[in-house]
Design a protein around this nucleic acid. Sequence first.
DNA 1: TTTTGAGTTGTTCGA
DNA 2: GTCGAACAACTCAAA
Length: 484
Amino acid sequence: MTEDMPGPALVWFRRDLRLADNPALTCAVRSGRPVLAVFVLEPLDGARSLGGASLWWLDKSLRALAASLEAIGGRLILRRGAAAVQIPSLAREVGAGLVCWNRLYDPALTERDAELKAALRAEGVEARSFNGALLNEPWTVKTGAGHPFKVFTPYWRAASAQLGAVEVLPAPDRLTVPHKLPQSEALDAWGLHPRAPDWSGGFDVWTPGEGGAQAQLGAFLATGLADYGRRRDLPAEGAGSHLSPHLHWGEISPRQVWVQARRRASHGGEALKADLDRFLSELGWREFNHHLLFHLPDLAGANVRRQFDGFPWRRDPKALAAWRSGRTGYPLVDAGMRELWATGFMHNRVRMVVASFLIKHLLIDWRRGEAWFWDTLVDADLANNAANWQWSAGSGADAAPFFRIFNPIAQGQKFDPSGAYVRRWVPELRRLPDAVIHAPWTADAAVLDRTGLRLGADYPNPIVDHAFARARALEALRAITAEA
DNA sequence: TTTTGAGTTGTTCGA
DNA sequence: GTCGAACAACTCAAA
């Protein structure tokens, strides 16, 4: 530590890879100390390794963060290893007097972070944590009786009512770094970008980083908010906000989204107000899922409704492989699974259809689907992924009724009536007429002949019959409800 | 304490 | 082709 400068403030970046509305960064800047940013690549993330798509994203997002820090005179230090070791070690190395971070809520991290805070304080280093990731932290939303909510609608009613005026922090325009900078690892050496093979060719639709996140929000608010309530259900339209990976990595905060969306809708009519509420309720689901994970730490591992522990799941590696690779013979399911593989993303409605198909048509444990999504989604998020899979399975806290079994053909006809989404992702079906695009096996021989499609060769026949699968799922569900 | 109304997103069947 | 009812029973939240 030099005589003329106080010990630096460390900003520990985690899933808050942005400069604006970043309470930890603001805290460090306002302390008047020189500021040093650090990111620690940990072997665990919520007790499990990051998926391939997440690593791809993190690679780009860290580059963007490093560049925007340098643009205002700052520097991002990269370290690898357990944060409980790396953060105190770096703090000692640079003589830090203050460490700031934004809180995470994964069950595997909360206790660790509390211990780290205590350890820093024991060494005489001030440690401060903030809410940078949620509108309402999980312990702040309670029922009238003081319990955590288990149903979305009353949760969101209470959570939005207590929110009050939402404010966002500006990005700092200048950072001062310490005279002597510590060593940083090289991002390239981390090998986060896939190679041999590089499967990420289709990921160029994404722009990770704070700039990309703001651009995405701006584009969505300009063209996508109007009629959002209807168009969000149509996968061919790409009408979603596509903010989920940006929100996951904290390249944009939910407060920023909340404020900007409401500002945009404030000079629109009643219809836009309804679209705004629908859009904000999606933020509400993100909040609710984090709330659930916080209060039910085993959300990703165990059925919330314990009678599902006795569910007769099938072990069927061939069917699982067909589902993963988009070769189930159901065009909407296959289109979704191929969109996922190609881009790291899948349209929300199609996620429900493929999840229902894996669970109810194939009777494969929802955890297998959750694991695949975890590895392949650029927006893979423990809370959202676990809560949504349990919702689909009907094993969750706020679960769909068991008789709600999506019909993949009817869903296609209803939400992709022109077949545009299927044609984009399942090109071998491109020449089929609209009438049979969602059920190719119903095409008569003349049509198949004309389009040159050989069912069973170019494109699989359905791996399971819908009516049979539906009856089988109802039977299985009856079995566990009768037991209980 | 008891009661009451409600619960993101659906499908099928029969009139 | 359209429309309403049935599909189970349970748990939650609030009065």
